[in-house]
């Protein structure tokens, strides 16, 4: 039987759609681990990235730590933590947060560093405080890169959250691990396809989010100012 027929048979079975082991519950668990880890990673990484981007201090150290963290295998971090503190959500979250921080710090830092010094000087010249410069000038200009950092962080977390199932938690990894345990290839493929679809969905959500929050003046979607347009409201024309 072809892989697609097996997949359709497994997904088509109503028994796989209900109860605590059903597909909706597993998707919800997976999204929950991902959202929680991404939220914590962003809470730590965004301020760090903004600070080192704005001040230019500590960048080398932060990027080096980030690169080292990138070479940490998540499965190793997870199993080590489980042996240290026992089964539960905490080891999974820590492993996923460690994975999620470096892309956000690196992208935020690069985004802020990329803001033209002339623009920052102009903002200071207008009397903005350092915090205002960061919040109202640097951050909006850096936003496309900041979001792309969040996006690659989210993609890595959503892919890797499958390892939660290895330490007796839920999520879509359950189908992979349980399917392997009983040599049920259809179940494994179902889990794999669902994780892939979820990753593509996350990717689309971030693309949409970027379109909504990034200023039209940065993306070229706003009409370019020309010599005969002044700053008066459009209604006066």
């Amino acid at each position: 039987m072809s892989i697609f027929a097996q997949l359709l048979e497994f997904i088509g079975d109503p028994a796989h759609w209900s109860g605590p082991r059903g597909i909706p519950v597993r998707i919800f668990e997976h999204v929950w681990y991902t959202a929680l880890s991404l939220g914590i990673a962003a809470l730590i990484a965004l301020p760090v990235g903004l600070l080192i981007g704005h001040t230019g201090k500590g960048a080398f150290l932060a990027i080096s730590i980030g690169n080292a963290a990138r070479s940490f295998p998540s499965l190793g971090v997870l199993t080590l933590l489980v042996l240290a503190v026992g089964l539960g959500l905490t080891p999974v979250l820590v492993a996923l947060v460690v994975l999620g921080i470096p892309p956000i710090v690196a992208a935020t830092y690069e985004g802020i560093r990329g803001v033209s010094p002339a623009t920052v000087d102009a903002a200071r010249g207008m009397g903005m405080t350092e915090f205002d410069v960061l919040r109202r000038v640097e951050l909006p200009i850096a936003l496309p890169l900041v979001i792309s950092g969040l996006r690659s962080s989210a993609l890595q977390i959503v892919s890797t959250a499958t390892i939660a199932a290895f330490v007796a938690l839920g999520g879509l990894g359950r189908f992979l691990i349980d399917g392997l345990g009983v040599r049920n290839y259809a179940e494994m493929v179902t889990g794999a396809v669902l994780v892939a679809l979820l990753a593509i969905a996350v990717d689309l959500v971030f693309a949409l989010f970027s379109r909504i929050v990034v200023s039209d003046g940065l993306t070229g979607r706003a009409p370019a100012p020309s010599a005969d347009t002044d700053l008066a409201p459009a209604t006066t024309h």
């Binding site: 892989i3 097996q6 892919s159 499958t162 794999a192 396809v193 994780v195 892939a196 593509i200 990717d203």
Partner: peptide
């Protein structure tokens, strides 16, 4: 290349044998 890269590696490890006919 963006879409390919967003597919989780573990998922690809599992789906590939079904597509190209190798052992899992």
């Amino acid at each position: 290349s963006g879409v390919l890269f967003s597919i989780p590696s573990l998922a690809l490890f599992i789906i590939l044998p079904g597509i190209i006919g190798t052992q899992i």
